[in-house]
Design a binder for these strands. Structure first.
Lengths: 199, 199
DNA sequence: CGGAATTAGTGTCGTTTCGAAACCAAGCGA
DNA sequence: TCGCTTGGTTTCGAAACGACACTAATTCCG
């Protein structure tokens, strides 16, 4: 067998490699990698996170760059802009029907399908490990974490509804499984023993 | 609880996200993402694969681009060029001491460490799933697969030595755990009870 | 209330990267 | 020996990205 100590290297490399391979679009799609990421992000982030700043911190880039990417999506009529009532500076974006249609051709599709072929237990285990890695890494680098509201410390199911302490308001149930920029992990769920798989 | 069918989406996204986050170098390192990948690749690929073409297909880019990246590493004296005796067109690269020193500051280090913190069982399971995903994805896209000689169909341990049918020569033992461009998977090594519908 | 400081978003400019295509040189095959 | 293929390099143009400057809405005190 192979020297144990080098396994983490191989895993890390493979992870990065798969990530890159999954996004290689190569002319057969009409969007750039950044545009795909943006479209995907707007499809999966909650209302208060689907903003230029939200995307900028997700993509770890500047707001200026994010703004450009979004503008290009807007020009293609894949997303629409809505100005917030709360804060008149802020805007948020939603996918148009065209945007959703485009998303169906996401080059990530292949990876998604391949993941879909895994059996459920394996998939769950994989997800659990992967999200542990994601938050541990985010912590080390101190990057914003980006998890779903359901896993967040700010989240408490109050009665029938769900309350987000961070925005100080009730969450639409549709938003619970969505990405949130002010996500704060509920402290590492430890590996041994099952995690209680909240969602 | 979330609609099961969307889990693969989340996993795929998370995977890509972690991949990107792991490579974000952001000024605090002096190499670009592509340069890091190249350096890493030359550190971990076997002799006949450490070439411009090898890197090009690994990185899924053109040979021209690969050539530029390599040239920049050469200029920084992180790698050295050796012309092959067998085929006078071909060149291969090795890391210099400086290159190895640089590699110690690989921004991937954080991810590697975080992976190293997993317990062995979890890590193995993760690796197994991940490599299954990698080859399934490569097959779908038909990209070259890039595995280690030890897992390759061309490989047979003949007596004390190891023989590679594809290059028609003995392998140095040091090369067995290394990446090879002409890797052909021996059909999925299943961890335990195999599923037969895989591909 | 009012003015500084902060935050959201946008536009511009220059650098860097990357892919396409043309090109050279060595091997291969008949 | 003459084509054909393959490994590698160069050039050129397009596009992505980061840095920076700017506007406008909001918040924070005094």
């Amino acid at each position: 067998m192979i020297d144990e100590t080098q396994t983490p290297d191989r895993i890390a490399e493979l992870l990065v490699h798969v990530g890159r391979a999954a996004r290689s679009e190569h002319a057969r799609t009409e969007l750039t990698a950044a545009q795909w990421t943006c479209l995907r992000f707007f499809a999966r982030a909650n209302g208060s996170t689907r903003t230029p700043s939200g995307f900028a911190s997700f993509q770890v880039t500047t707001r200026g760059t994010a703004s450009q990417i979004i503008k290009s999506l807007e020009r293609m009529e894949l997303v629409t802009r809505t100005r917030s009532d709360r804060d008149r500076r802020s805007v948020s974006f939603d996918l148009t029907d065209q945007g959703r249609a485009m998303l169906a051709q996401d080059p990530l599709r292949d990876l998604i399908d391949v993941i879909g072929d895994l059996d459920t237990a394996e998939r769950d285990a994989f997800l659990a490990t992967l999200s542990r890695l994601a938050s541990a890494l985010a912590m080390r680098r101190d990057l914003p974490a980006f998890g779903t509201c359901g896993d967040c410390t700010h989240f408490s199911p109050s009665g029938g509804m769900a309350y987000c302490a961070c925005m100080a308001e009730e969450l639409a149930t549709a938003d619970i499984p969505k990405l949130c920029a002010s996500y704060t992990p509920t402290l590492e769920p430890r590996p041994q023993g099952d995690r209680d798989d909240a969602d």
